[in-house]
Structures are given as structure tokens and as C-alpha cells.
Simulated assay, not measured.
Amino acid sequence: MNSPVVRLRGLTRSFEQGGVRIDVLRGVDLDINRGEIVALLGPSGSGKSTLLQAVGLLEGGFGGNIAISGTDAETLDASGRTELRRNHMGFVYQFHHLLPDFNAIENVVLPQLVAGRARATAEDRAAELLTALGLAQRLDHRPSQLSGGEQQRVAVARALANRPELVLADEPTGNLDEATSDRVFAEFLSLVRGEGSAALVATHNERLAARMDRVVRLHEGRLQHQGKADA
């Protein structure tokens, strides 16, 4: 049987603040299978972003075991973790973090060039993704010339450019108004499902969580598993 894309066992994370120990994650277990989109719910300060940082191998200091695409993160040095992120993961944040001096298609081409893809192939892939997100007429526009929703669509395309097995999204439409958020999030889900990627999406929005395959909640540093948000 294929191993899950994400496998967490006993994940912990603590901080010292003012001489006081704060346990943010207190033994998190989680599997995410290929093609599965999981909502990570919890109020602000519950540790959602910390958990995403752990899964994304973006910082150290975690206890327990993290395995991504069958690879145990503990066996990797810094360059190995970077390679794993580049080859297997895509990231979408609340703020798009696009490069302001590059247009939409260039922002989606760049991560592919870093991964070693030929420019012509990268441009075709970028145009395909941006067109699927309704931006066929905006390929040569810079971020400052795009609306907030359009900028976030470019960020989604960039995250999927290298066909990642796993997409990590932290409040991916949290900076948009409700109507735009609904449209962009629907497009995000459709594209991720069409690509066959797994995804872990941190949100505080129960309505958006209900549109995903499964919901997990962070509560007092532990993960509570459930089905759909309205189950």
C-alpha cells in the first residue's frame, strides 16, 4: 500500500516566553493521503501556522516524527529539506508574496526554472494554470496591475507550477472579501483536485472547511479528527 503524503506522529512544539513554557503542539498525529484535501480548523493562536511550518519543513525545534512522501525528515540535512520542499510541495499564503517586478506568467515560471524545467515548457505550464484560473487576458500584467483576487490566483498557480504532491495553504483567501474569497477558493479546490495533489488548508472559516474532504481541529495543542465540518 502506498504511504500517505503526510505522516505525523507525536509532533510537539514548545516556546519560552517570559520564562514561561508554552506548549503549542502536544503530540499531533496526522495522515494525509494522495489527492485528499484536509481542512485544519482552529482559532487564531491555536497553532495552525506552526503545524503548517512543521509539515512544510520550514523551521526546526519540533519533536516527534515528520514524513513527507515517504521520506523521514529527520534523515535530511538542510539541503535535503530544501529539495524535498521544491520537488514535492507548493505553498499558498494569506498574502500572495508575488515578485512585484515580474508579471503574472513570470511569477509562475520562476519556480519551475529553479526546479530545472526548460523555459518554454515552464511558460506553457504557467499559461495553462493561469488560464484555468481565468487569467488568460492578464498574463503580462504585474501584481500592481491586478486585483487582490487576481493576485491570489497567480499565487495559487505558482504553488501548483511544479506539480507538487502536497499543497500547504495558510488562510489562502483570508485577505479577500467574502464574494471574491468564495470564487478564488472554489477555483483553488478545483485546480488542486484536478492536479491530484493532497492539501492541508489552515482556516478559521467553517463554511470553507465544509467544502473540503475532511476536517481536523487543533484544540489545546492536540488534533481532533472528524469528517465534514457540518457532520
Rank of each mutant, 00 (worst) to 15 (best):
P111D: 02
A157G: 14
F95N: 14
P4K: 03
G47R: 02
Q152H: 13
A209G: 01
T82Y: 07
L160E: 04
Q17N: 08
Q17H: 09
A198W: 08
G19M: 09
F102R: 09
G56I: 07
L130N: 15
A209Y: 00
S49Y: 03
T71F: 01
G227K: 08
S46K: 09
R85I: 12
P164S: 13
D213C: 07
E59D: 15
N107M: 04
V92P: 01
V6L: 10
L99C: 07
L218P: 09
D23H: 13
S190F: 00
E178Q: 02
S190K: 09
L146E: 15
L208V: 06
D230M: 04
N162A: 06
F95P: 02
G227D: 11
E128C: 05
T12S: 12
R34P: 04
I37A: 00
G196Q: 07
E206C: 00
M212W: 00
V109F: 01
V114T: 02
I105D: 06
N33K: 00
V201R: 03
G35C: 08
G80P: 03
H225Y: 10
N107E: 12
P164I: 14
P143Q: 14
G80K: 01
H219C: 14
L133F: 08
G27M: 11
V215W: 03
D101A: 11
D72G: 07
S14N: 11
I105T: 14
A210K: 14
E123R: 15
L40F: 07
H225N: 13
L11E: 01
E178D: 03
R163T: 10
E165T: 14
A179M: 14
A136V: 08
E74A: 15
D23F: 05
E128F: 10
A132Q: 14
V184K: 00
A127D: 02
L51A: 11
Q224Y: 08
R13S: 01
A118H: 10
F102P: 01
F62T: 06
G27Q: 09
A169M: 03
V55C: 08
L99Y: 08
A229M: 15
M1R: 08
G149D: 05
V108N: 02
R158S: 03
R222T: 10
E178H: 07
M1L: 11
S46E: 11
Q53R: 12
